[in-house]
Amino acid sequence: MSETAIIHNRLPVLRAERGLSRKALAEALGVNYQTVGYLERGDYNPSLELALKLAAYFDLPVEMIFSLQPFTPLSRMAASGKGD
């Protein structure tokens, strides 16, 4: 839906790691629960403020959560790690 560049994100993985529902994450960030779904699916891009809030919430650098390039799947990262 967004007319700007697609921003890829790791929100579903980070949320799953912490056992959070979209609603719980939305409440923690002070946004509507449907907004989290829109961000996860890439329907809309987050504002800088929201991206920084998410980075602070997950205690990660913002580039670990959002990227202009697709993230490498964890399975491929694990496979390449085994090969080293």
């Binding site: 960030l29 002070g30 946004v31 509507n32 907004t35 829109y38 961000l39 809309y44 987050p46 504002s47 403020e49 929201l50």
Partner: peptide, 8 residues
Amino acid sequence: LDDVERDL
């Protein structure tokens, strides 16, 4: 409203 909603 949140950021996305305000943009919408």
